[in-house]
Simulated assay, not measured.
Amino acid sequence: MTATAITGMGVVCALGQGVDALTQGLRAGRSGIALRERTARPLPDGCRIGAEIRGFSFDSALERVGALPEERKARALKLGRRAPFTVQTSVVAALEAWSAAALEPSGVDPERVGVLIAGNNLTQQYVFQTHGEYGSDPTFINPRYALQFLDTFHLGVVSELLGAKGEGGTVGGASASGNVALARAHQLLALDLCDVCVVVAPPADLSILELQALANAGALYKDFTDAPSRTCRPFDRRHNGFVPGEAAACVVLEREAFARARGAPVQGRLLGVAVQLDGNASSDPNVDGEVRTMRRALAQAGVDPGAIDYLNAHGSASPLGDRTEVEAIRRVWGARV
């Protein structure tokens, strides 16, 4: 499979808006985890800490994206002003990535531009809030809700925003949704079904129901609630669960030959991907499945494990998850880790 070029990226997260803000925060070692600001919503005990997108204003965020053609900006405002929070952040991230990829203005055939939305069940808080307002008498519910509660609404908004008319869809994979969507985009490009594929990963805006269920399942953190920056401790003997966070991100992928032919700024290359099932409906991880997937990705990329400088782990901060992942990594990389 041929390499895929990464030509644009965009992000809205707890460390700020834009790739530069995220990069600077990571280099400075800043944590986006803090006490939750949205105290108006009910929160279960033990869920008052998170990596929230704070102080988000859709109109202000659009102004910070950079130089946008007036027609594109007007379209974004029309699509996003009355949309759920998750859609608004996706629009901002997508516009940053589209601009960074030098696709503004774009001479790319719209029928060769694909869009993939990473994730499912993305508007849980919006659905929960709407049910609270109209559940007892839905007579006058806004008809927009018929579209906006669906994950495909994200797809429609981004495709209209960018004028994309190629292949598209929503791709779910729980915590791995972003990676699954990138793998799918890589495959679409390799099959020559599109020249450009825009992958958007919206934040999962969870309601009290999802948060309480995760807490009851033992998946969320349980201590250091008075010291938010110390709560997230993957691969630590004191780990006891993950901290929920929010982020919208977008990556623009292109067939490498196409990107270079149009003089696009190639920021990286995706060489190989692998997505494997364990044949298991439960949440318990499987060492053999993780080993098999990593080895297949390396083989497809034609890269030896010894050539890898950086490994991005799941790091769920759960005792079983961390222990399983470490064992799988050691099987593939041996004494290097």
Results as ranks from 00 to 15, higher is better:
107 G>L: 14
107 G>P: 03
107 G>H: 14
109 D>F: 08
109 D>N: 12
110 P>R: 06
110 P>F: 06
110 P>N: 04
110 P>Q: 01
111 E>M: 07
111 E>N: 07
112 R>H: 06
113 V>D: 09
113 V>N: 09
114 G>F: 07
114 G>V: 01
115 V>T: 03
116 L>G: 04
117 I>N: 06
121 N>E: 11
122 L>P: 11
122 L>T: 05
123 T>M: 03
124 Q>H: 13
124 Q>C: 03
127 V>D: 00
128 F>L: 00
128 F>H: 08
128 F>I: 01
130 T>P: 00
131 H>D: 15
132 G>A: 11
133 E>C: 02
133 E>I: 03
135 G>P: 08
136 S>Y: 01
136 S>T: 12
137 D>Y: 00
138 P>Y: 12
138 P>C: 06
138 P>Q: 08
139 T>S: 14
139 T>Q: 15
139 T>P: 08
140 F>E: 14
140 F>I: 14
141 I>E: 12
141 I>P: 08
142 N>H: 10
143 P>Y: 02
145 Y>M: 12
145 Y>L: 04
146 A>S: 14
147 L>F: 15
147 L>N: 14
147 L>R: 11
147 L>Q: 13
147 L>D: 14
148 Q>N: 13
149 F>I: 13
149 F>P: 05
150 L>N: 11
151 D>F: 00
151 D>C: 09
152 T>K: 05
153 F>P: 01
153 F>Y: 15
154 H>N: 09
154 H>W: 11
156 G>A: 05
158 V>M: 10
159 S>F: 08
